[in-house]
């Protein structure tokens, strides 16, 4: 039975690459409207989990439901509900920000008029007007991140997954981006965020899970992670050190 109050439900997800277990029987429930931080060291299984949700990887076992839609059996419908800004720049480096959004919007079946209205809005929102016709390879790290975010949002997904969205972004732009993400979340968008900047997680997220060696090792509200006056970073380090 599906829970309609959940944006994402992961049930006993396992992902193996040969003999290596990248994700080991994890379960997660993320309510609609949540700003969810997924933390963990490099290689812990964060990106693999995201890849299983979005269709880049095939789960070995378990089930993933996005807004009640199974990402394997009803993959076409499920994919319309998810937007991804990945950690690595998985783009045609000769395409411009405008083209990236145009192509992605087209792939999602958005009609031309609506698509171009959204492209104009996103270009403006991410301050990309001066760079809309510049090839991706010529953009700075921060501009690349903003173009990737625009691409992830072109189909107005219900669930937005941001894998290290502010890596390489300068402080001022990072704060601007935070304000935008907070605003989107306040308007009801469910966001999953992975980041190595734990102050970013602390500032933005209201629910947090830590994954290590492919397993969920801690899960709770931000307040639970900040008990006894600790920061999220302090709690995170304590948990990871205890694990290792």
């Amino acid at each position: 039975m599906t829970n309609t109050a959940l944006a994402l439900e992961i049930k006993n997800l396992t992902k193996k690459y040969g003999d290596k277990v990248a994700v080991d029987n994890i379960s997660l429930s993320i309510p609609k409207g949540s700003f969810f931080g997924l933390l963990g060291p490099n290689g812990a299984g964060k990106s693999t989990t995201i890849h299983c949700i979005t269709g880049i990887a095939q789960p070995t076992s378990g089930q993933i439901l996005v807004d009640g839609t199974d990402v394997v059996t009803e993959y076409k419908k499920a994919r319309t509900k998810v937007g991804l800004s990945p950690q690595e720049f998985n783009v045609d480096i000769f395409a411009t920000p405008e083209q990236l959004m145009d192509y992605m919007g087209g792939y999602y079946g958005i009609p031309k008029e609506t698509r171009w209205q959204r492209i104009d809005d996103l270009i403006k929102r991410f301050d990309l007007e001066a760079h809309r016709h510049v090839k991706f390879q010529k953009l700075s790290g921060g501009l690349k991140r903003r173009a990737m975010l625009g691409r992830a949002l072109i189909h107005t997904p219900e669930l937005l997954i941001l894998d290290e969205p502010t890596a390489g972004v300068d402080v001022e732009q990072r704060h601007d981006l935070w304000a935008y993400l907070k605003e989107m979340n306040e308007r009801g968008k469910t966001i999953i965020l992975t980041s190595h900047y734990l102050e970013e997680i602390q500032y933005l997220c209201n629910d947090i899970a830590i994954i290590n060696h492919g397993k969920i090792v801690a899960e709770g509200t931000k307040e639970e992670f900040m008990k006894e006056g600790k920061s999220v970073e302090q709690t995170y380090l304590e948990i990871i050190k205890a694990q290792n």
Binding site: T54, I56, N90, V91, M104, Y107, Y108, G109
Partner: peptide, 18 residues
């Protein structure tokens, strides 16, 4: 092959294509 090389293929994989 270029899409595999740049991982641009992921744009297709996450899109609603059968």
């Amino acid at each position: 092959y270029f899409m595999r090389f740049t991982r641009g293929i992921e744009e297709i994989l996450i899109s609603p294509f059968s």
